[in-house]
Design a protein around this nucleic acid. Structure first.
Lengths: 141, 141
DNA sequence: ATCCATGCAAAGCCTTTGCACCCGA
DNA sequence: TCGGGTGCAAAGGCTTTGCATGGAT
């Protein structure tokens, strides 16, 4: 984890930038990236900066107003075990371990019956707190 | 998609670098990133370059010898709909649409019974080919 | 009046790429 | 031999950050 994203109880100011970003995002279902949001928002606020867009996307996601897709750490990791399996990620320390549960293969067929995409696979990642971080949290308490 | 990763039928040479990367990766279960693999491999091949590690991780993953975790595009996207739901990603054009299926909430409880992590959530993404790309593929055939 | 938010530009992090040389099959 | 592979360094894409100024409450 590179960034502090704890939902500390600070009041959010509803600036024009923040409001417009939220409004624009809610008007589309295209799941845009930051740059794309920047482009959309700039039509209404020509002087907004890309940094502000990034910062507000962070803030709004932390506040639960919008959802961040493609979560997980920024770097890509590799697994010497090519067998298909799921992982559990610790949201505190970003450690990743194998999940000892079966892959839900029938789920894909289920989704296939409800979409016009040709489904080829799925990825699933569990998130939680690892024992080590849990313990550290307990010590501080 | 930024990169051509089609499994064209080119024979892979088993160079020392490639072999050592594969061996090292199979000896650990820590799901290392590229830089970390670089560090591990360099103990045995001090002159290997980071670029070679990246290239070989790509090749090995494409060949199915190892698995790439944290798949999906490099940029992060945002969803104006904060309601929990899954997405389907087109592996050709990277387009993302909402999946009209229920979130598998009970799955977390199932995993919880088999791990010492405290499970807090999960993310699931379906992958496939969107109708548009499917059509384009048909035209070329 | 406070103090969070913004704009701008620079820096950062991870990854990819161009190029000349190298080497495995 | 010969076409893929490697090392090196430079470039690239996306994101974050430092700093002075601005603006919401």
């Amino acid at each position: 984890m590179r960034k502090e994203n704890a939902p500390r109880s600070r009041r959010l100011r509803m600036t024009a930038q923040r409001r417009v970003i939220l409004e624009e995002l809610r008007q589309v279902d295209s799941h845009p990236g930051a740059e794309e949001v920047f482009t959309m928002v700039r039509r209404r606020l020509p002087r907004i900066s890309l940094a502000t867009v990034y910062r507000n996307l962070d803030v709004l996601a932390a506040a639960g107003a919008i959802a961040r897709i493609d979560t997980g750490s920024s770097l890509k990791r590799f697994d010497g075990n090519a067998e298909r399996h799921y992982h559990i990620r610790c949201i505190r320390c970003d450690r990743l371990v194998d999940a000892m549960v079966e892959v839900q293969k029938d789920f894909e067929a289920h989704v296939q019956s409800k979409t016009d995409f040709r489904i080829l696979g799925h990825t699933l990642e569990l998130t939680g707190i690892c024992p080590r971080c849990e313990e550290q949290a307990a010590e501080r308490a």
